[in-house]
Design a protein around this nucleic acid. Sequence first.
DNA 1: TTAGTATT
DNA 2: CATAATACTAAA
Length: 344
Amino acid sequence: MVNNDDVARTLQRIGDLLEIREENAFKVRAYKLAATQVENLGESLTDIAAREEGLLGVAGFGPAIAEKVAELLRTGRLDYLEKLEAEVPPTLLSIRELPGVGPRTAALIWHEAGITTIEELDAAARSGGLDGLPRLGARSIERIVTALDARKERGAHRRRPRAEVAPLATVLRDAVRDIPSVIAAEVAGSFRRSREMLGDIDIVAATSQPVRVLTAFAALPQVERVLLRGDTKCSIEAAQGFQVDCRAVAGDQFGAALQYFTGSQAHNVRLRGRAVRMGLLLNEYGVFRTDGGERIAGESEHGVYEVLGLRWIPPERREDRGEIDAAVIRSVGEAIDHPVGSEV
DNA sequence: TTAGTATT
DNA sequence: CATAATACTAAA
């Protein structure tokens, strides 16, 4: 019996394999978007397939994907995926999962060094087998070796249950609040959205001295390894290789940064799309008018949603399941300026 | 400066 | 035609 999660994983897998094959980016995006839509679906695909409208009624599904999902539900197999896996070795997906290795690097390692498995990569990286590849210098190879070591320590799995990492999240948030010049700090990301499985922890800090705060963050006792540190953000690994990101912003940008860092990605993309249609630009620093660049929100998260004509949306609901449409404020003035439906 | 990867 | 925007690092 094929369930929604199986379908979502399969669609994601197709997207990843197509990406390594350097397939048309819009096709790749279509498969990944369809995977996300299935993840967020409240109803069984098997039930949907049995109805009149069928799978074409699912958001993100066109004829090609609908037909493939139908085959998967019916037979438990997918001919297209099997052919694709015969062409692009699926073991490359594990290589692609290493931090710092994306689809282009995975394809390069495959084509130029003939490597398809983690084991082959490990041997080659340590014995000079990757030397001389274009766009892959000594530092990149060293980073791959480090990533392989980390993978051996903690295994392939990345996500952890909320209860397991919640203490770390609050301890680090409080530690950031104690750094001099920090005005406010909150845990954002999937933690703030109350998700059960967490891939990392995201902390937003308001300060007038971002570099100082990020330097202090990188020096906290819970930090085992600094992955990167710039002027606005710092990524570290805590115990068991669990990643924690800290973003430092000015006090009047805190609301926009909290909104951005809370996500979800799909929610942010939809929100920014709405902003564009309203002649606005939304980023992690605020909301700006497209003409003139005047900033009209950013200090508070409520303000960000407000200038976009929306009620504030609780973090748990920011998953692109229709919450933005449901939050639209249709005042008289707005109804004249933007008649219902005109912004969609 | 650009390509690749990463983040929500 | 195709849903946004920005940061960091290494390589060229």
